[in-house]
Design a protein around this nucleic acid. Structure first.
Length: 598
RNA sequence: UGCCCGAUGGUGUAACGGUAGCACAGCAGACUCUGAAUCUGCUUGUCAUGGUUCAAAUCCAUGUCGGGCAGCCA
């Protein structure tokens, strides 16, 4: 964001994390495996938006490529046309680009539009040629030829079993499967049938191509897994060219090989697929050194859900406003919420990479964003829930400009002038008619400091018919502003304020965690949606903001002093009428104190 | 009752046979024109039982607990 300080640019570069995959790769590089080259890939299926769990994988794959001077291919893993869409490929491209911008762009490898060879163009060599992500579907012709090769070698056969029978013959984890009656089909016959499958002669699911491995293997994925299935469905990238689509297991290892990937990093649930990954590549007797698969634990974050299925449900059921709702753990949601890419990357660094399936504390993400924004976000005064204050000993028409520091963490951010006048707004929370224990803000007869202005004393309280406090009558110590005779007086509390006449009325959205329980998908017998937090969004429409905020641009981030970090909503703000999203609250010792004392 | 993987404070992670450390969270204090930030201090841990070894979080065995695998999904 160009409006923010540059101080974040000189933050010390985080040392690359050491973890088991890092060690494996470092070992390979040292031993000269793959000619010392490192090639990774990030292979999302374009059937949903990317989330913070994908960010972990992106940071891992791009981080490794970056550190070892290698490449990381962005590849659409699009082998199932029935659930994929270009809307998703566009969002994925954008999110990946945004996340790695200024960090690992040089490692990002794309390809020339229309090129299906698997050859990439990495960031360093990017010219004017239009580029696009890799697509597994670009390799359908090659993958088809590999399948033919497997049939010729007697390692695959066409099977006529129905989906139901295929399942039946597969057996179960503790019971071996049975050979398909078509298992002994000759290579010639399988070849002919496979060609007819491709020609569209058979309806969906009528036949499959299967690997001939071992129906009694303890590993279910080795029980003659399906390699190809018939789907008379148009594909978002290849159109109507195919009615035959490869399965993940067949397409993935081959795509890796075609692209020259060396280290194929995926999540734990694919661990049992690794023998199949290796089997396919080895069965083909390929000339080049083979890629290998390594698995790590996916991210689980407290108070949210991470599966694309569940996130999609939240979108479809209108529980959130879309994939980019600021409450969503999606990259686009976090971005709209105000999370800088750098903060997300730092979070991914903090959580580490292991094979342990844990649940990461939501407070770690909050820590990452606070730490980042504390250094880069300009301070500003904003009153979310206004309480009118009239200063009795201040002239009616007088307006003073008070000099305020933009960012105490960054002197280069400079200062600004904030107008002060007789009638101001303060935060309702900063006043208590009868002060609670340890409350040292404003109450009748008591003094607080107005940030960058005078010491203020409450002399009277005005209420409406219902007894609600609607206005405070106060006086100031006229010598107490900066440089004044009594400026040095020690006052326990400093509160923020906004001049009523100059204030910008604005809408602010307060976001809280989406769920009320830390692990919504692990609740016994519970539908995760029954644990939604009804207070995950609070819209406040009559906030009074410092006038300088009138020019705030979409995406710009601020610290509202004493309240938290806020970001101008990029969708619903209008020129001169910014809408703010709360990214995170500030730590709040008083809130804790209040909770303790009840 | 099959196969694969895992287990270190509340949470996440380090220690690669030789002093269990870091971060977050929590607690207490200092400082403060943000009850923020910053600084200081503190609490809390090797799943269990055996074995190998001068020495085990680390190696071995058994058990316990947790996760994954039976899509023509990825």
């Amino acid at each position: 964001m160009s409006h923010e300080n540059s101080s974040s640019q000189d933050a010390p570069p985080a040392a690359p994390a050491r973890h088991f995959i890092h060690e494996i790769i470092a070992g390979h590089v040292q031993a000269g495996r793959y000619g010392g080259r490192v090639g990774t890939r990030f292979p999302p299926e374009p059937n949903g938006y990317l989330h913070i769990g994908h960010a972990k994988s992106i940071c891992l794959n791009f981080g490794l490529a970056r550190e070892f001077g290698g490449t990381c291919n962005l590849r659409m893993d699009d082998t199932n046309p029935t659930r994929e869409d270009v809307e998703y490929v566009d969002s994925i491209r954008h999110d990946v680009q945004w996340l790695i911008e200024g960090w690992a762009e040089d490692s990002l490898t794309l390809k020339k539009v229309g090129d299906a060879s698997g050859a990439g163009v990495s960031g360093k060599n990017r010219g004017g040629t239009p580029l696009e992500p890799f697509y597994a579907s670009d390799y359908f012709p090659q993958i088809y030829e590999f399948a033919v090769e497997l049939i010729r070698k007697g390692k695959a056969y066409v099977c006529d079993l129905s989906p139901e029978d295929t399942e039946r013959y597969r057996g179960s984890p503790d019971r071996p499967g049975q050979d398909s009656p078509f298992r002994d089909r000759s290579a010639e016959e399988s070849l002919a049938l496979f060609q007819r499958m491709r020609a569209g002669e058979f309806p969906d699911s009528a036949r499959t191509l299967r690997a001939r491995i071992d129906m009694s293997s303890p590993n279910i994925w080795l029980r003659d897994p399906v390699l190809y299935r018939i789907r008379h469905t148009e594909h978002h990238h290849t159109g109507k060219q195919w009615c035959l689509y490869p399965m993940y297991d067949f397409a993935h290892c081959l795509s890796d090989y075609i692209e020259g990937v060396t280290h194929s990093i995926c999540t734990l649930e694919f661990e049992v697929h690794r023998p199949l990954y290796d089997w396919i590549l080895e069965a083909l007797r390929l000339p080049r050194e083979l890629p290998r698969q390594y698995e790590f634990a996916r991210l689980n974050l407290g108070y949210t859900v991470m599966s694309k299925r569940k996130l999609l449900q939240l979108v479809q059921d209108r529980i959130v406003t879309g994939w980019d709702d600021p409450r969503m753990p999606t990259i686009s949601g976090l971005r709209r919420r105000g999370y800088p890419a750098e903060a997300i990357r730092h979070f991914c660094e903090l959580i580490g990479v292991t094979k342990f399936n844990g649940l990461t504390d939501a407070s770690l993400l909050e820590f990452a964003v606070r730490e980042n924004l504390n250094k880069r976000a300009n301070r500003v005064m904003a009153v979310l829930r206004p309480l009118k204050v009239v200063i009795e000993n201040y002239e009616d028409s007088r307006v003073e400009m008070m000099e305020a520091v933009n960012n105490p963490e960054d002197p280069s951010a400079g200062t600004r002038n904030v107008p002060f006048s007789k009638t101001i707004y303060i935060e309702q929370d900063d006043f208590m008619e009868t002060p609670a224990k340890k409350f040292y803000r404003l109450f009748p007869g008591h003094e607080v400091r107005l940030r960058y202005a005078y010491i203020l004393k409450c002399v009277a309280v005005e209420k409406d018919a219902t007894g609600r406090v609607v206005e405070l009558r106060c006086t100031i110590d006229p010598d107490s502003k900066a440089g004044g005779a009594t400026a040095g007086r020690k006052i326990k509390a400093t509160i923020h304020w906004v001049s009523a006449a100059h204030a910008l009325a604005s809408e602010v959205r307060l976001y809280d965690r989406l769920f009320t329980v830390e692990h919504p998908d692990a609740q016994a017998g519970g539908d995760f949606k029954s644990f939604l937090n009804p207070k995950s969004l609070e819209v406040i429409t009559d906030c009074r903001l410092e006038s300088s905020l009138k020019e705030a641009q979409p995406g710009q981030r601020f610290q509202f002093e004493r309240l938290g970090y806020f970001c101008v909503d990029s969708k619903e703000s209008a020129p001169g009428k910014p809408v703010f999203n709360r990214t995170a609250t500030l730590r709040d010792a008083w809130a804790k104190e209040r909770q303790k004392t009840g």
